Simulated assay, not measured.
Amino acid sequence: MLRGYYTAASGMLAQQRRQQVLNNNLSNMSTPGYKQDQGSMRAFPDMLIERMESKSLPTKNNLNLPVRSEVGSMNTGVYMQETKPEFDQAALRETGIGTDIALLNGNVPDENGGLFFTIQNEDGEARYTRNGNFTVDGEGFLTTKQGSYVLDQAGERIQTGGVEFNVTEDGILEANGQATPLGISYTNDATQMVKEGNANFSFNGEEGQQAPVNARNVEGVTFNTRQGSLERSNVDPAKTMTEMMSSYRLFETNQKVLKAYDRSMDKAVNEIGRVR
């Protein structure tokens, strides 16, 4: 009986976590370059159920032998194992603003490969983003809307001298008579990237995983940039709302099961187990 409590409760907790992920996706539907998260559900290890009985043998001493037969397995619940962002290319939105730059995937040789703009956070550490909603600060450096510096191919800050500059399709920023390649990074396994807010990512790969490198130095990798446009988020609002409704129904179903167990326990304690 108590096992049923835990199974139903685990289902409710898993769907609650799934609702949080879907709600966060929907909240960032208008964030440029946002990559939606997908939750991975996993069942707890199965429990093997066996029937244990004895068989009497027609002997002088009336010998009994233990007999065990397999009934089957039983699952004890479910939980959300992890959430991973999906790095599918989203549609572009034309803004006509010169500081907006969209990054388009070309050829990516690895199945989970990903391309990113390289930026520098306030601690001077490299971070990665698909959000090309850039601006120029008071010193003439190209930055994100949150103030992180956009880096070039050499890992240096980009001086534009103002908002009047040109970006070619191959990611070369032309300003002040100089041509500066934007820092476009490539990782062969984007699933190792960790979200940090504002559509930014850090690399948290395990030992042996390749950290993001200069995409221009990776054989087979191609990309394009488009000035005056932004990549939309890859959140499908209709699909997300449908998944939220499905998750709510599953939560509600587990809740009803939990209430049924509660009524059964109440009857067992207060009626069946009553001492007369």
Rank of each mutant, 00 (worst) to 15 (best):
Q38M: 06
Q89M: 06
D170F: 11
V275A: 00
N105Y: 05
S54K: 13
L250A: 15
K259P: 13
K195F: 01
V194N: 09
K84C: 01
S73G: 11
L230I: 08
E252P: 11
S148K: 14
T83K: 05
A179G: 01
E252K: 14
F203Q: 08
V71D: 01
Y79F: 13
S202A: 13
N121L: 12
K35N: 01
A14M: 10
A175T: 05
G273D: 00
N198P: 02
T180V: 12
R127P: 04
D37Y: 04
Q209P: 01
Q20V: 08
Q159C: 00
T225I: 14
N200C: 05
N121G: 12
D46F: 13
P181K: 08
A14W: 07
N23R: 11
D170H: 10
A43T: 13
N121F: 14
K267G: 00
T180R: 04
L92C: 10
E169P: 13
Q19A: 10
N112V: 04
I49P: 00
A211N: 10
N62L: 11
F134G: 00
A9V: 11
G33T: 01
Y128D: 10
Q38R: 05
T76L: 14
A215N: 05
S264R: 02
P45A: 09
G77F: 09
R274V: 06
L250E: 12
A175V: 01
I158C: 13
F116W: 10
S202C: 04
R93A: 15
